[in-house]
Amino acid sequence: MTLYQKIPTTSSRIDPMMLVAAAGIVLLSVVATAAIVRWLPDGGRAGASPVSPPVPATAASSAASLPAAPAVRKVREQNSQARATQFASA
């Protein structure tokens, strides 16, 4: 004859916080999937192209070969001088 009863340490119930967390993950996954597939409406960008058209390689190379404007060149020089002083002071 046993003098003690076995204490149950497991439960068949699901913890309510785990249920809420699982439902939240499922909901966020559904919304993310709908946004990727574009099932959700775009309120502010109606009729706008989501991706800009690609630039031809010839236009990109010709723009890179143009000399920089004097104001832009001056700003670049100031930025490089500021970086040099930062490294020198460190």
Rank of each mutant, 00 (worst) to 15 (best):
G44Q: 07
L19A: 14
L19K: 12
W39R: 03
A48R: 12
D42V: 04
P70H: 08
A64Y: 05
T85A: 11
A69T: 12
L28I: 08
L3F: 07
A90N: 12
P70E: 04
E77L: 10
R38C: 04
Y4M: 04
T10K: 13
P41G: 09
T9Y: 06
L28V: 11
A35C: 03
V51R: 03
A23P: 00
L40D: 06
A34F: 03
A82M: 08
A64V: 07
T33L: 13
A71I: 10
Y4Q: 10
R73Q: 15
S12L: 09
A23T: 11
V75Y: 02
I7W: 04
S62T: 07
L19G: 00
A84T: 09
V31C: 05
A32G: 13
A23K: 13
T58G: 05
D42Y: 03
V75C: 00
P53I: 08
T58I: 10
T58S: 14
P67T: 06
V37T: 14
S62I: 07
A48G: 01
T85I: 09
T33V: 11
V55K: 06
A57F: 06
V20T: 11
Q78C: 05
A68D: 11
A48I: 00
L40H: 07
R76M: 06
V55F: 00
V75N: 07
P56N: 09
I14C: 08
S12N: 11
P56E: 09
L19C: 02
A21H: 02
V20A: 12
A69S: 15
L28F: 11
P54L: 10
Y4F: 14
G47P: 01
V51T: 12
L27F: 14
Q5R: 14
T9V: 15
S65Y: 00
P8R: 15
A23R: 12
K6H: 10
S11E: 09
Y4P: 00
P41V: 08
M18G: 08
S52P: 06
M18P: 00
S11W: 07
R76V: 02
T9P: 01
M17V: 02
A46I: 11
D42H: 06
A84R: 11
V37P: 02
T9G: 10
I36R: 02
L3Q: 05
R83Q: 12
V51K: 01
P56L: 08
A46L: 12
L66Q: 15
G47K: 05
T9H: 04
G24F: 03
P70Y: 07
T85H: 11
Q5Y: 05
S52D: 03
A48E: 09
V75Q: 15
R45F: 10
T2L: 08
I36C: 01
A32M: 04
A48Q: 14
V37D: 02
N79A: 14
S89I: 07
S11R: 13
S29P: 01
S61Y: 00
S89Q: 13
A57Y: 01
A63R: 13
V55L: 05
A88R: 14
A35Y: 05
F87E: 15
G24V: 04
P54G: 01
P16E: 03
S80T: 15
A71R: 12
T2Q: 13
A35D: 09
L27N: 02
M17K: 15
W39G: 04
V30Y: 09
V26T: 12
A22K: 13
Q78T: 00
L27K: 01
V55P: 01
L19Q: 11
A59G: 00
A32I: 04
